[in-house]
Design a protein around this nucleic acid. Structure first.
Length: 196
DNA sequence: GCAATGATTTACT
DNA sequence: GTAAATCATTGCC
């Protein structure tokens, strides 16, 4: 069952990031469905420097973050990796959740083929750039609605208890100064697909 | 118009 | 452990 629009449109992006753990992320591209369980997320808000929309600075790249919650924000980093975000909150509030890692469930063969067959399965989706490649997400997927049938999030009926959730500072945003220390990264304790 | 750079991954010294 | 790959977006000229 897909998560309802109202899930994304709540105002607390940190809480949404935590609740997304254990949910299923799926894509259907060229009639092939691939996806898995979300095991690692990070929250971003326009109120802090780590976010592209810091200070409510609206540009063509990040404008989708200013839309209503429930859309995707896909962006190319380091010239070769796509990063997948989920827009949250209401119109004109630029908050988003970065999905950093999933545990493969659906279409594993297809994901291996996309990533190249030389890898062991723990490297398949254990990082933000890797999971987008495995799921076939690229910048053409920017701005998709999560209740359509190309990219969506499902409630897997799986509940992650609070003591299974680990919080830590976000990764790769040293330039954000003090904001880089915010404990806005969430992982499922002990899961093997979490990025290092 | 143009140069600088990043929410990363991979391979190599 | 460190460096190269590689390009859309950004911000300044």
């Amino acid at each position: 069952m897909k998560l309802p629009e109202s899930f994304y449109q709540r105002t607390n992006v940190v809480k949404i990031a935590r609740e997304l753990l254990g949910k299923g992320l799926f894509t259907k591209i060229g009639d092939v469905i691939t996806g898995g369980i979300i095991v690692e997320t990070e929250a971003y808000s326009w109120k802090e420097r780590g976010c592209h929309a810091f200070g409510a600075r609206k540009t063509r790249r990040n404008e989708v973050m200013f839309g209503r919650g429930g859309h995707t924000y896909v962006y190319l980093c380091y010239g070769m990796h796509h990063l997948f975000n989920i827009v949250t909150n209401g119109e004109d509030v630029a908050d988003a959740v970065l999905v950093r890692a999933i545990e493969p469930v659906e279409g594993v063969e297809q994901m291996m083929a996309r990533r190249g067959r030389l890898l062991n399965k723990f490297h398949l989706t254990s990082g933000p750039g890797k999971l987008t490649k495995a799921l076939g997400i690229d910048r053409k997927c920017n701005g998709k609605f999560l209740l359509d049938n190309e990219i969506w999030i499902e409630d897997m009926g799986q509940k992650i208890s609070t003591n299974k959730i680990e919080t830590s500072p976000r990764i790769g945003i040293d330039y954000a100064g003090e904001d880089a220390k915010l404990p806005w990264r969430f992982t499922i304790k002990g899961n093997l697909w979490i990025s290092k």
